[in-house]
Write a protein that binds this DNA or RNA. Structure first.
Lengths: 319, 319
DNA sequence: CTGAAAGCGCTAACAG
DNA sequence: CTGTTAGCGCTTTCAG
């Protein structure tokens, strides 16, 4: 009816009718019912964001970036926690899709090569953008950082600082984990340093696991004199373990993390890290997704790679 | 129709029809349309959560608690950031309500005495639970901690540690801020210590503002020998300022925060704090809200107060 | 520029 | 236990 058009300020409504409708609407404190509207327009203005862990500042920052772009456009964000589990992630995606979200942004916990994610995502035709972790050999929109470059940057920095026995607390079996490991190995190889297998410990994501893994490294002989950690929380845990054992950071063992989370500067020893522009990742992913959703023609696959940036603080500064 | 009932495993459907329907549904890869369902049932299974800042770990933990309770029940959470601004908060609430959320959990940024929130909330009849900040003299469900007790606990602890010139970096002009300030004053009065007005600095919420405020305190003569900070990020910033000035924490100045955020233990100086059971706040609020939503009869106003708990770490341990 | 007709996909209420 | 009727609140299409 006329009212419906007037309220949405359609063009083919006379100015007079429009103001009259508006006035009466205000009087009645009328609110359009979004649900009913969605039913017919097939748009919900809801975006699903699936991340491994909201408590990790890196993802909280990404979420903030996403929100910042989407809210002014009238979208709301539903954040789902996959807890770094592929199964949970698939279930979350299912749920989100059955809610008719307009689009999805996901930092996938699918291990390399696993395809559950795309079986789920591909069959429906919900637009989506992957962030942070780029599943190998998949054609999908992506926004993130070249992980191998992160690994190289961090490891070469430690080498420059004079470290010769460099260990790596690596992350989970996803792209970010394996990419950073590859970079670490490449840097060691390039500088003809030994890559001791027992210097690489798998599966760290949090400060508590970082702490445990570092305690293990300290029992090796010789212990490492530099450690590249998968992310900042892991690095924070590692620092705690080292200090407790009476050694010094960075003089006995230099530490570098990745992510440049907000509180890195306030840690026990201010943490050197590789900045990944978390906010920007969220914002760019949001922009890309908006484009996918709102443009009529399908958007050609786009991969946005943000260059990593070395941030040197006290935890690795030896000279 | 029969199918609809069968899918929702209504009671009055024969076992045989049910399985037949289910089978065919699977064959067709049928998914119910939640939007259409919502339109008729008037339930969206969406909860709005409005908090001042997702990046603050305290609220991230609360959000986790909320999510943990709601997800198994089939609800999704939309998190909105009010950026500690009453106006933004009101707008967010409006939006959430017009989306027909089934309920709301809000850590309100409304200053004491301001009523915009309830003008908004009260007129519609969306059930809601307030958390963390209890607006004075309002009849509403609430889950949080007695702020005055936090102030007393923190301040008395500093006094016990031998501090005599105790400052307070206070928070924003909401219940949490003024309550903690009251507790601080009460503790000082009880121990007959002077409450110097210039020892109280207003409006801190983040590490950067905490840093700035602490730098100012350091210019006073005499500077304080103990500081009770509104929350942990503020305390972290304060510690940074003190160490930079060449003084020691806790020996020159003891510090205590509030919130017991996850990384407090990893800070420059492990931070003493008042634990507020952030996860529990989220969970209890969620439980209460579920009850409001699902019970037929209106739930009598309930206030759940979780006792604060002193956590002593290095930043305040003087003996 | 205005309005009548039809239907989005589902469920509540009731009749067979 | 099954199926019919009606309608949730909105928008799209098309005729006045």
């Amino acid at each position: 009816m006329t009212v419906s058009k007037a309220l949405r300020s359609h063009t083919d409504i006379s100015e007079e009718t429009r103001t009259r409708v508006m006035k009466r609407a205000r009087e009645l404190d009328y609110r359009p019912n979004w649900i009913a509207r969605s039913l017919v327009t097939r748009r919900t203005y809801v975006i699903g964001l699936v991340i491994p862990d909201l408590m990790h500042s890196f993802f909280a920052e990404v979420a903030k970036g996403v929100t910042r772009k989407f809210e002014p456009l009238g979208y709301h964000i539903i954040i789902s926690n996959s807890e770094e589990s592929p199964e949970v992630e698939e279930r979350q995606l299912e749920l989100l899709i059955s809610r008719n979200v307009d689009g999805l942004i996901v930092a996938s916990a699918q291990p390399n090569g696993r395809r559950g994610l795309f079986a789920t995502l591909g069959s429906r035709k919900v637009p989506y953008v992957l962030i942070d972790r780029m599943p190998s050999g998949l054609e999908a929109h992506f926004v993130g950082v070249k992980d191998e470059e992160i690994g190289v940057l961090a490891t070469e920095h430690l080498i420059e600082q004079g470290c010769r026995r460099i260990a790596h607390l690596r992350g989970p079996a996803v792209q970010t984990g394996s990419g950073r490991l590859r970079g670490y190995r490449r840097a060691l190889a390039k500088h003809r340093l030994e890559a001791r297998p027992d210097y690489v410990i798998s599966g760290q994501t949090s400060d508590s696991t970082g702490y445990d893994a570092m305690r293990h490294l300290l029992t090796l002989s010789p212990p490492p004199d530099g450690v590249f950690c998968y992310n900042d929380p892991v690095a924070a845990g590692a620092i705690k373990a080292i200090l407790e054992s009476g050694l010094s950071v960075p003089n006995d063992i230099a530490i570098i993390g990745a992510g440049n989370v907000h509180y890195s500067d306030l840690l026990r020893v201010p943490l050197s890290t590789i900045d990944q522009s978390s906010l920007a990742i969220g914002e760019k992913a949001a922009e890309l997704l908006v484009h996918c959703i709102e443009s009529k023609t399908p958007t050609p696959i786009k991969r946005i790679l943000i260059p990593p940036r070395l941030v040197v603080r006290e935890s690795s500064r030896r000279k």
